[in-house]
Design a protein around this nucleic acid. Structure first.
Lengths: 201, 201
DNA sequence: CCTCTATGTGACCACCCAGTCATATCTGCA
DNA sequence: TGCAGATATGACTGGGTGGTCACATAGAGG
């Protein structure tokens, strides 16, 4: 958590610091990113940074939380979408793509987060990953029990595939992946998962 | 390329250097890996390393090539497998898994390669990636034209999915992924890709 | 005007890194 | 034995990093 001093700062200065940190942490993982470069680009002294934050990790976690707070504002709409798991997932990735296009810098921060190493970050990341995984697994299990997703498939394998493809999609939002490509990819998955009547496996 | 001096070394010394380098480059990306630690673990002087190799990158590329040369010995058998694209792909990943289990250290080097950055590595990696991608795309196109893979799907999307899942599989060989899990995952993909008669998309 | 507190500063520290080079040692040959 | 070329060495350089600290400044209240 930032120190109180940080929030006493004139907003324009605070936002300048956030902007430069977002830039640096969007272009580099935590350990590659350079605090020295951030303060240089802000035009403030190294020591000042330590009036605002405990250390590099404190600043980093604040910026990452900033990015994910904004991303949540987009993505949470997907949970309210009526329809089966395929419609919810499509909405999720669509909102995720909108976030990436409207906040490219924050999107890059969020992506680089998963590649970051060092300090206690490793464990933090593993925890976040595990928590998300368990949410998705439960969501998937419902869909399999209700018959929307082919129940003959190995649930762990289905999760594995979705996880891998989802990560690859998000990694490439705004590069290879646009709205129509997104649909094509999801279709490849869907028509592999959807329960098929009559035709045996 | 290593300097001639390196190959004049007594084999046990040469292999000790290779072993320590493999260890370091298996645990760290190129830029994180420390030459100082390698020489320390080998019990040789820093300067000696520069009698054998031009620089850190030279050593790294030698080690990576070592790893991929061994991996090729396994994987190339897959190309000779008779059968459709699914059988070839399964053979490919199966051999790949065998390599990972029998040469875990080399497997880690090969995996970390793709995450590595710095010097001219970025461009080299992009080239290798592009070359592999184009091979696989061609292989896939054949399979789609011959009707083994559902021709109604977007070829780029199919490639995208296979690429994402393939990378995730290889990343986790020996951890989450064993032989039976591999088959389950490939099945999820296959039954999404296989041409289906009668049933409309 | 003085004082007290909050904030700003940048030289400085300890650490790690890749890469260099003058020097020492070894080895094989004459 | 002596010489020459090949090989080994590790202190050293220059550059980067995160983090610290004694000091400078600013602003508010009496």
């Amino acid at each position: 958590m930032p120190k109180p001093t940080f929030f006493n700062l004139p907003p324009e200065k605070r936002e300048a610091i956030e902007a430069q940190a977002i830039r640096e942490f969007g272009e580099n993982t935590f350990e590659r990113a350079s605090l020295s470069k951030i303060v240089e680009n802000c035009g403030i002294a190294k020591g000042s940074m330590y009036q605002y934050f405990e250390d590099k990790l404190d600043l980093y976690l604040y910026i990452v939380e900033l990015a994910y707070a904004e991303k949540r504002r987009y993505v949470e709409r997907a949970y309210a979408v009526p329809g089966d798991i395929f419609q919810v997932l499509e909405a999720y990735y669509r909102e995720s793509l909108r976030f990436a296009l409207e906040h490219p810098a924050l999107h890059k921060v969020a992506n680089k987060f998963w590649e970051s190493r060092g300090q206690h970050l490793d464990k933090t990341i593993d925890q976040v990953r595990a928590s998300r995984a368990s949410d998705f697994r439960a969501f998937l299990q419902d869909a399999m029990e209700s018959g929307v997703v082919n129940g003959e498939l190995d649930p762990e394998a289905v999760f594995f595939v979705y996880h891998a493809v989802g990560k690859a999609l998000i990694d490439q939002f705004g590069e290879k992946v646009d709205s129509t490509f997104l649909c094509c990819v999801l279709d490849v998955l869907k028509y592999g998962l959807r329960a098929r009547k009559g035709e045996p496996l």
